[in-house]
């Protein structure tokens, strides 16, 4: 890759405005991890107007649950899970200040709209490179829901996490671009349900 931009957390508004779908970046700084149950709990607390166990403002959430760390290691292998399972909770968390999400796979219309409205960003992490990403984690501590085991919320200090911008604040969508750029002329049948692509 020619141009890989280095960015840091907390994500500034200006950075979010500049990032475009298809940009390769490396991210450094503090991020949070959270998956299905953690999201539901944050969503429920936020909806009821209660205080959250973590401050989401300017934060980046990584949809991840690592393997157990060997003794003497900071963390086990860690990588993204499928983001769509978090879709129903995400607009609320963005409303509460979440600025970036790291996962894999397509987001719902509501999430993409929320990203535009609040100048946020959705990053793709490469699925299945969890040993590589593990080595870019400098510290890890559980900050909420320890009873969830690997799905507990953690605060990670990361250095040069390799990411790609999927959905940007201008409505750009790398996944859409990929299939529309290459696919149309060669798509094998008109019956392919385009709305599901």
């Amino acid at each position: 890759m020619k141009d890989i931009r280095k960015i840091h957390t907390p994500l500034a508004d200006e950075i979010c405005r500049e990032l475009s779908a298809g940009d390769a970046v490396t991210l450094s700084g503090t991020i949070l991890t959270g998956r299905d149950v953690a999201h539901r709990r944050l969503f429920d607390a936020g909806t009821r107007g209660e205080a959250l166990p973590v401050d989401l403002r300017g934060m980046v959430m990584f949809y991840a649950a690592p393997t157990p760390a060997r003794p003497g290691r900071i963390i086990g292998s860690i990588g993204p899970t499928t983001s769509m399972r978090m879709d129903r909770y995400t607009p609320k968390l963005i409303e509460l200040g979440l600025k970036g999400m790291i996962g894999k796979g397509r987001r719902s219309f509501e999430v993409r709209e929320s990203i535009k409205e609040h100048n946020a960003v959705y990053f793709g992490a490469i699925g299945g490179v969890a040993a590589l990403m593990s080595r870019r984690v400098r510290s890890a501590e559980v900050v909420a829901f320890p009873e969830l085991g690997p799905e507990a919320m953690m605060r990670l200090e990361v250095v040069d996490f390799p990411l790609v911008v999927i959905n940007d604040s201008k409505g750009g969508d790398l996944y859409e671009d990929a299939v529309s750029r290459r696919g149309d002329a060669r798509r094998p049948s008109e019956n392919t349900p385009i709305e599901m692509l």
Partner: peptide, 11 residues
């Protein structure tokens, strides 16, 4: 030929 490519990034 779908265009999806590695990780859906195109290719």
């Amino acid at each position: 030929s779908l265009g999806t490519g590695p990780q859906g990034y195109g290719g």
